[in-house]
């Protein structure tokens, strides 16, 4: 053994920020999460130069997967131009030299907070979702160790009871985003705070979805062609947000998840939440030849 073999050349910063041992650990944990879809796999979750709760979990996955040819797209609330999305995109490009894009069709890797793009993702694409709270049981059991035991026992009775009580009280399930869903018939997971609109996009999808909670140090995965079933009762069907009939005031896009913009006169207008879809729709309206991919929803209805 020589001193040379024990050392490596000094670098001011590792490629992709994380050092080799941090990447290896994340790789090992990701493989297990792929093998047991929906199961929360604990990982070390190193500190990164961004505050906890601001996408550090997604960032560590992206930093591990990235190489100089990975084309990255970063969105927050569906928008590429949100300051936090811009900040994360800038960081990823800075530590990797990877090219960036706003177009979901061009991206190899999409890091997102709270949305799945409207255009159907392909089987060579990875979607990394930032997760604030990886534990779907937290509303009924805040203690992580007890919740873990409940997953071990597939004990989701209290989860069902909570949904039932909402139906009794309010006539419907009151869960907004983060709708708890059963993955591969075994683990209940949170799909991260994506709207209910987006959960069906994960079911039997062609792309790979990696969900990572940096602060809580857990990651879970929805592999391609994997069942993702929102928890519902047979006689109370799953309902996505009632956005199918809304039209984007800016782009004219219709039948997608919308942002509601309150107006001075007490009314609201809507604009499409997937900002690049909005941009592409405008460009096409203005006569440009823009490729818009097939979308999961057509005329406001999910196509299976």
């Amino acid at each position: 053994m020589t001193l040379q073999s024990l050392t490596r050349a000094w670098e001011p910063m590792s490629y992709g920020f994380l050092d080799a041992s941090a990447k290896r650990e994340i790789r090992r944990k990701m493989l297990k999460a792929i093998a047991v879809p929906g199961c929360q796999v604990p990982y070390a979750s190193r500190e990164v130069p961004m505050a906890r709760g601001w996408g550090t979990g997604g960032l560590q996955i992206s930093c591990t997967l990235i190489n100089p040819r990975t084309r990255i797209k970063v969105i927050d609330q569906g928008a590429d131009d949100s300051v936090n999305a811009a900040s994360i995109r800038k960081f990823l490009a800075r530590v990797s030299g990877a090219p960036t894009t706003n177009d979901a069709l061009e991206a190899d890797l999409i890091q997102s907070r709270h949305r799945v793009p409207e255009e159907v993702l392909r089987e060579d694409q990875v979607l990394v979702l930032q997760v604030p709270n990886p534990e779907p049981l937290r509303p009924v059991q805040p203690n992580m160790s007890i919740a873990r035991q409940m997953h071990a026992d597939a004990d989701y009775g209290r989860m069902w009871l909570q949904l039932y009580e909402q139906i009794v009280r309010s006539g419907r399930v009151m869960q907004g985003a983060s709708y708890p869903s059963l993955v591969n018939g075994r683990f209940v997971m949170t799909p991260s705070p994506i709207p209910r609109w987006d959960v069906p996009k994960l079911h039997m999808a062609r792309h790979l979805t990696i969900l990572s909670a940096g602060r809580e140090k857990r990651l879970h995965v929805v592999p391609p062609f994997t069942r993702v079933e929102p928890l519902v009762f047979d006689d109370v069907p799953y309902r996505v947000e009632d956005h199918g009939g809304l039209t984007c005031q800016r782009s004219g896009a219709r039948g997608y998840f919308m942002n509601e913009i309150p107006q001075d006169d007490g009314s609201s207008i809507h604009e499409v939440s997937d900002s690049d879809l909005g941009v592409k729709t405008i460009r096409r309206r203005e006569g440009e030849a823009v490729a818009i991919g097939a979308t999961w929803y057509e005329n406001g209805e999910m196509t299976s």
Binding site: R52, W54, Q77, H114, P132, P193, P195, E260
Partner: peptide
């Protein structure tokens, strides 16, 4: 970090 993350936009979850 979690405390200040509430400053980030949450309009998608809020809309939901």
């Amino acid at each position: 970090g979690f405390c200040i993350h509430f400053k980030l936009p949450h309009y998608v979850t809020f809309q939901s």
